[in-house]
Design a protein around this nucleic acid. Structure first.
Lengths: 198, 198
DNA sequence: GCACTTGATGCGCGGCACGCAAGTATGTGG
DNA sequence: CCACATACTTGCGTGCCGCGCATCAAGTGC
């Protein structure tokens, strides 16, 4: 899973991918939410030290490039839950897995704010989040011993968890908030498992 | 709210908007999920009896045009919940409101399948769904008497409800399913309010 | 070292979003 | 009934983008 576990080709590929994605996010943050249109593909590519043509060998839209890191992280949700001990009850396992996933490291406020305050980027991030629901639902089903094909519980819970993470992010970004993301996330997730106001 | 409640200008505007959006959806269905790229703006416009330039006075992307109907419907979620009697308990009110919203009329299988099996359209629909969560959260907060600024419950629940509707849609489209959408939707929503497998 | 695989790049085409400036239909006051 | 104000439609031009194709270079296995 680490760099030296893959051959040179794979490492270079990941390196350029990360370079492009980091450059895209950085430029987007510099321009601010209102200036997304000013972030040209050419700028991203040259900031990443790569040709424009190469840029879209990796991404087919600016939004995709900017949100790639978020997408990768969300994609690990399923495996994060599976990594919890089998005998842990669902709620505890979900909270622990998601807190671990989103606390290492603490999310970048500027990047998250940029994404969540730009409709086009939010849409892209949303897509990534939703893609992650499938594996997460399977992990939940495996843990609860339910059949995803017949029972809607795993899928609905996965969607709820994803939604809670989004809500937590939004609340964490709210002006004047001082709590750690882990704290907010825990509060949000507790709402999923308790149908009454906290 | 009905047609004759607005002046001619507004009625014409809505008429062309609907014409464009219907044409877009129809053409998309004809081409199927894999052929979205073949649905040109020019085709949509001429099918709607309007110039290409007018098309993007209303929509700035094919996806937006195709998903406009879904988006409008989702946007009514908040008001649908507010329309329920004040003394109705939350779960009952939510289920009733959403079933009413999504059963008049029964969703179009072809359109829904088209959208949910095309990543780009799914992303657009997702965005529309998420936009509707805000008003829905406010309606939930008003009903439960909680403060949306301090308590995450309304927002998380709104997100969960939206997620449940999506899951219901996906399950309803699954091959071999014979239940009505209302039935599936009710089952999915019940998962939101019960943290244990049904 | 050599043939093969795979990623990077340059070029060109078709398409799209959108600003701008008429042209035209709709609503209003005299 | 008519002129004026409003705002929707349309054509045109511009700049940017996604992507197929052919080529080149770096990496890999024998």
């Amino acid at each position: 899973m680490t760099d030296d576990a893959m051959d040179l080709r794979a490492r270079n590929k990941r390196a350029t991918r990360d370079a492009i994605s980091n450059a895209a996010l950085r430029l987007a943050i510099e321009q601010g939410p209102s200036g997304l249109a000013l972030v040209r593909v050419h700028d991203i590519a040259s900031a990443a030290g790569v040709s424009p043509r190469t840029y879209n060998n990796y991404f087919s839209s600016r939004e995709e490039a900017i949100c790639a890191l978020q997408a990768d992280q969300a994609g690990r949700a399923g495996q994060a839950l599976r990594a919890r001990p089998d005998d842990e009850p669902l709620e505890r396992a979900v909270v622990a897995a998601m807190v671990e996933l989103y606390t290492d490291p603490e999310p970048d406020r500027a990047g998250l704010r940029m994404i969540m305050s730009t409709p086009e980027l939010e849409g892209e991030a949303l897509k990534a989040f939703t893609m992650a629901e499938g594996p997460l639902a399977e992990a939940i089903a495996a843990r609860t011993g339910t059949d995803p094909a017949r029972d809607l519980f795993p899928a609905v819970t996965a969607a709820s968890v994803a939604g809670a993470i989004r809500v937590a992010g939004r609340h964490w970004l709210a002006p004047g908030n001082t709590d750690s993301f882990a704290a907010v996330l825990t509060r949000a997730l507790s709402c999923v498992f308790a149908a009454t106001p906290s």
